[in-house]
């Protein structure tokens, strides 16, 4: 089903390979070089679909980030039991004694 609403615009935002590679690094994902063009094209089509939003004038419209109208949800500063270390580390893929283990952090 293709809705009347989404004519095939030419891409306005050019989703290029270098851009996709940059975003993939930011997202800590890998894109195999053989896939990069396909992924870029696919994202390009989605971004084009999304850009139909630009048909709407939203000047002065207050963004709505969350429909909740609630304010002031707090908890009191009362300690609650923590997990035991065994429970806390039970799902960890790599641990030594008391710690989680990761490749050496250089920074």
């Amino acid at each position: 089903m293709t809705r009347h609403l989404y004519p095939l615009f030419s891409l306005r935002m050019d989703i290029t390979r270098p851009l996709v590679e940059k975003v993939a690094l930011l997202a800590r994902l890998e894109i195999p070089p053989a896939d990069a063009d396909r992924v870029a094209a696919q994202l390009g089509r989605i971004v084009t679909m999304v850009e139909t939003l630009n048909k709407l004038d939203t000047k002065g419209v207050e963004p709505l980030s969350n429909p909740t109208g609630l304010v002031d949800a707090f908890r009191s500063d009362e300690p609650r039991p923590s997990l035991s270390r065994d429970e806390a580390l039970a799902n960890a893929p790599d641990k030594v004694e008391m710690f989680l283990r990761v490749p050496r952090v250089v920074e």
């Binding site: 975003v23 994202l43 963004p63 709505l64």
Partner: peptide, 27 residues
């Protein structure tokens, strides 16, 4: 795919054009 899309739409230089715009349309 969705992680890439979201990362892109929040990244510096695109936030206003995509994320903020979408929130305005949400309103």
């Amino acid at each position: 795919r969705r992680i890439l899309l979201g990362t892109f739409a929040l990244s510096s230089g695109y936030y206003e054009a995509y994320y903020k715009k979408a929130l305005q349309v949400r309103r």
